[in-house]
Design a protein around this nucleic acid. Structure first.
Lengths: 341, 341
DNA sequence: TTGAAAGCGTTACCAA
DNA sequence: TTGGTAACGCTTTCAA
């Protein structure tokens, strides 16, 4: 019922009695084709709905005008925001985005990377999995002349540009805010010891305490493995059951904060009167939980946009050496869980 | 520093003193190539890390082994779940997924569709925007011989297969549950009058009332335009301020339910003691809000998987005529907001 | 069992 | 200003 054969340059050339190369050049308004020929060819193309076969063009130029994007998890507010930003920026520059997820495993990341490397993208945007160390599968891109840009979760081992959240500054602001609200015994439920984001947030936390000459207590720092709600609950319990409990908790993510708040509510602690809580990420749930959660917004959309622009710049300049780091500023969103005054 | 020229079939053929066609066939274990030759070629390929150039293969076969996926909104729990399912299923069948969003506008959908149609995908998965009526830009895919599958938000005008949530049944179950919990004056904050999902949910709501011989009251039905938190708040207010207020509200989405709950809490109504609330979608926030929200889970992952399978089946069978509808069952998740017994 | 050659649709070089 | 031709890397007849 459907099916309408597409016309090619050859058809145009034959019908117009010119050569294929002339037709090709005319369509691109090449400067040494006469205006008359150009007009003739363009008119014909228009009338016959000529559409260039991009597969052929791209094959010829060995380009795809697509970029790959690998995230640890797709169903995740922050990452879907980043994807949205990347697609928006890439689209404006004529690139499609091929999306995949690693499920935060090395294996998954390798599978995703390989399926993209084999001729379907011109470059890669990646937020590495927790398990990624060497990243040989990512180096392969560079070896093939395809640039890679890392964002958010990055590895220092890979010689690529990076676009990151300013985790240090975000944490610093969050903790400073707590101090400003009158909290003085501030705990931190942090992420893994070997992940850069969680290290930076931890350091921002420590620096804020130092700058305001507040007590730093080793026992007030808890280390998550999964960054889960359950861990938030558990560590809040551990923190509050000690001799010298904190009066505020700065959590590595909103989900962990939600677990902590669940515990605090259950035990009748008043938030923020008795205990203040701050999260990180500013997901939708921060706004919705009760009490609403003060959180650090990571500007995911901007990160996606910026990453895509950096990558496409490299693709277009054939630059594989760049290792610039771009830091995106965070923004503290103050809500009920920490507001005392 | 990097850059390692890829070897091609021609290189293999030359080095091994055979022809390109023999090399090509040997690699695919073609049945009339001798076992010895096959082994020789494969060993050589292995040693020299031969990777076929898929751009060339795909160009030759006019295939891309990619599918397009257009959703109204990317930053949305349901849609990101669907995307995740589609990528998972497509990956298993050797397809990459090119993702884009329409921002729920016709214009956006057309732009996204066009950039994919021009030779970058073999078929399209689409959940149409609110503004899409005729869908000429989608028919173009069929005209080019590329199958289209609609999911979730669908248009009856387009002759394509469809994968949908069983909205009617989901709503029916939700309302039946409320009735079973002892609620008898059940209101409905519904979606637009011209959108199929919201019509189906409305009809499920009405049918449940009829089957249980409960009162249907025209005044208890409110129509959203944006499906926003604000509308939930506003309509809950309108409903509760009438002479004869309902004792339960079934909402078109969790976000609307959250708006309604906000109002109810503010006015001191006890949930679910005085007013029961049920949402639809089962986002993360349903679990997190207080009280936690009973909601209809839509199995987004299954929808994504199923849609991808249906599409890839059509691509591989070259079938452009199919218009089957696949309904995915929903699942009611019962939480505090409706549990009376 | 193997090879030669044509062809997919385009671009780009070299001649005319 | 134009045309012929080779080339991109592969698959697929057709012949040998």
């Amino acid at each position: 019922m459907f099916e309408k054969r597409k016309i090619t340059l050859k058809d145009i050339a034959k019908d117009l009695g010119i050569s294929v190369s002339t037709a090709s050049r005319a369509l691109r308004s090449h400067r040494d084709i006469s205006p008359e020929t150009i007009k003739m060819v363009k008119d014909y193309a228009e009338q016959h709905h000529y559409v260039p076969n991009f597969q052929a063009v791209n094959f010829r130029k060995s380009r795809t005008f697509s970029i790959g994007l690998i995230v640890p998890e797709l169903v995740h507010h922050f990452f879907s925001t980043v994807i949205s930003g990347a697609i928006s920026a890439a689209g404006k520059r004529g690139f499609n985005v091929l999306v995949s997820q690693s499920n935060d495993t090395l294996e998954g990341e390798i599978v995703a990377a390989r399926s993209m490397l084999a001729g379907s993208v011109d470059g890669l945007l990646v937020s590495i999995s927790n398990e990624t160390l060497e990243g040989a599968h990512l180096l392969e891109f560079l070896e093939e002349g395809k640039p890679v840009v890392q964002f958010d979760k990055i590895s220092g081992h890979l010689p690529t540009p990076k676009v990151t959240v300013d985790d240090f500054e975000g944490a610093y602001q969050a903790v400073s805010h707590l101090i400003h609200q009158g909290f003085s015994k501030i705990a931190h439920i942090r992420g893994r010891l070997d992940v850069k984001n969680s290290i930076d947030r931890y350091e921002g936390y420590v620096q804020a305490l130092i700058d305001k000459t507040l007590e730093f207590n080793e026992e007030w720092v808890k280390v998550c493995k999964d960054i889960s709600e359950e861990e938030g609950y558990l560590f809040a319990k551990e923190l509050m059951e000690t001799e010298n409990p904190p009066d505020a908790i700065f959590c590595i993510t909103d989900l962990v904060a939600w677990g902590a708040i669940k515990y605090l509510k259950k035990k009748g602690f008043e938030i923020p009167a008795q205990v203040g809580v701050v999260g990180f990420s500013n997901w939708k749930l921060a706004e919705v939980m009760s009490p609403s959660l003060t959180s650090v917004d990571q500007h995911g959309f901007a990160i996606g946009e910026q990453s895509a622009h950096v990558l496409i710049d490299l693709i277009e300049s054939q630059n594989l050496e760049s290792q610039e780091t771009h830091q995106i500023k965070t923004n503290l969103i103050i809500r009920e869980s920490s507001k005392r005054r």
